[in-house]
């Protein structure tokens, strides 16, 4: 048994709790079956990431991060869900569809993957002045679980949300190891994401127009 772990400070505790909530929202996405629920969870997760950016800005005195927090709030909490919901309004579909596995098995698989991610991250000994290392492990776990989400879900919306939340995981990781990244680059990343979202939206509509559903189960023509 490891010796008693000294409790981290209040700042680290709050930051870690936010990071844990980001991971939990990722798990919730595995479970959510309705399109709206998926998008809401994504918005909530983005909100958490933005709040965490503000917390880092306040706690470590990095004023640029306030700007980043505000931008990511505007883009990822408001614009992206709005764009996607708008694109989907015409499809008149409510239910995103089910996964390949049952929800409980999906969660258990994701737990295993997340623990592996944790374990892997702890081996790298990457320490950062901005946030405790736990948050980095959590970020990598978010990324790993988002891959599970993209793999086990069989509808375009869940897969797209999987990609968006992958980006949230990367944002979380960048708060840990790259809090000082020049603002202009962060902004470039965010706008790139926005472009990607629009393209995802367009392709979702193309898919719906061709297939008359949002499911990807019949995407089996191209093989070999």
């Amino acid at each position: 048994m490891a010796p008693t772990v000294t409790p981290p400070g209040t700042y680290a505790g709050v930051a870690n709790v936010l990071a844990v909530l980001v991971l939990l929202s990722e798990f919730a996405m595995l479970r959510a079956a309705l399109l709206r629920a998926q998008m809401r969870l994504y918005a909530a997760q983005s909100l958490l990431v933005s709040v965490l950016a503000a917390v880092v800005a306040w706690g470590r005195d990095v004023p640029e991060l306030y700007v980043l927090a505000a931008l990511s709030l505007a883009l990822k909490v408001v614009v992206v869900p709005w764009v996607v919901m708008r694109q989907l309004r015409q499809t008149r579909t409510e239910i995103a569809g089910s996964g390949v596995l049952g929800v409980a098995s999906e969660v258990l698989v994701a737990v295993v993957v997340a623990v592996l991610a944790f374990f892997a991250t702890s081996r790298f000994h990457i320490a950062s002045p901005a946030l405790p290392t736990t948050a980095l492990g959590l970020a990598v776990a978010v990324i790993a679980v988002s891959f599970v989400l993209m793999i086990v879900r069989r509808d375009v919306v869940s897969q797209a949300v999987g990609f968006f939340s992958l980006e949230n995981g990367v944002s979380l990781a960048s708060l840990v190891v790259a809090a000082g990244l020049p603002l202009i680059l962060e902004v470039a990343f965010l706008f790139d994401l926005l472009v990607a979202v629009v393209v995802f939206g367009v392709l979702m509509r193309v898919h719906h127009r061709r297939a008359r559903s949002l499911s990807t189960e019949h995407l089996t023509k191209l093989r070999g």
Partner: peptide, 24 residues
């Protein structure tokens, strides 16, 4: 439509890792 969806999803997910590489 099928090909483009597979492409955009896989490539974007891959580039997500690419972004992580950039940050590291």
């Amino acid at each position: 439509a099928e090909a483009s969806w597979k492409y955009v999803l896989l490539a974007s997910a891959g580039l997500g890792l690419g972004l992580l590489a950039t940050i590291v």
